[in-house]
Amino acid sequence: MIPLLAQAAGRGSLSREETLSALRRGLEEPNPMPPVMPLVIIGILGVAAILLLFHALRSRRTAAQPFSYLRHAAQLAGLSLAELQDLQVVAERARLPHPTAMLLCPTALAHAVGLAAAAEPDAARDERLQRISRKLFGVGLGERG
């Protein structure tokens, strides 16, 4: 409607009748899409695509990260995130197939710490693991309960 009125306006002053008929034609004729609309639609589709991609990536990341027995066991055992990280480092250095076993008995933990120390000595880490052993089992590494 606005373009029709604008066209009529471009021709000079309109009579009342002309104005009304132009208005009627404008109402009767289909409204052509403004030039900005395709951009808006492309923008909306783009945002949707980004959202979909983000969702898919997040799903994949969630699927690639299976349930961690060690993480859950550490939570149940009341260990902090820092302590869990120490245990993860030990498990990795000691190449343990079942790291959670470290939390089940003091000899398993001491064995893992020994293997990790042989692979990569770290006195500070050993000290922290000593504390974990006392916290979990009431005895230090290598001590009998």
Binding site: A77, H98, T100, L104, C105, H111, F137
Partner: peptide, 27 residues
Amino acid sequence: KLDALYQWLAKAAAPEADQILGAALAL
């Protein structure tokens, strides 16, 4: 807390729980 850990493994359905318990038993 250690008891809770043992109880969780005792009830866990997955065979990984047996493997974890076995790995601990080995030592």
